[in-house]
Amino acid sequence: MSNAELQNKRDSKTSNKTQVAAINGWMTTDGEARLVGGRGAETGSYFFPKNMAFSRNPSAPSEEIAEVHLSARGRVWSWTTNHYQPPAPYMPADPFVPYTVLAVELDEERMVVLGRLAPDCDPATLTSGVEVEVERGVLYEDDDNQYMVWQWRPVATEVAR
């Protein structure tokens, strides 16, 4: 199954609430889940998030920044599981559930991007170098909406599901 098909399957499993991005412009909101970054027209430097119209590469201060999708897959650089509830504006589940944050190396972009581990994945299975894929997941919800964020899922566990 392709990444897009899997994402559709996961999207359709959730409730009939409206899914909205927890933050606009940082990832695709339908179809294949991808992080949305910026790329310099001259240098090819990548940026995540894009959020600024200008380049932060000092060798090309006037280069145009185009919106690009970052690689769907990367490799685990490191990870940590948080056992204490963070302060606001974190939106905790009630009761609080520990969660894992990954640092993921993207080969093509030559950068490391943070993201949480899909909550149904076991962090005990992680080692550095494990291949992970980006997907959309529910960060928190209210009566009407589910607020979506990017998250990483080890590619191997996808096969096992």
Partner: peptide, 16 residues
């Protein structure tokens, strides 16, 4: 904090 729950100790944990 909002999107990741990335407290300061989160970064320390990643380095460790």
């Amino acid at each position: 904090f909002r999107l990741l729950g990335a407290t300061n100790p989160t970064y320390f944990g990643l380095y460790a």
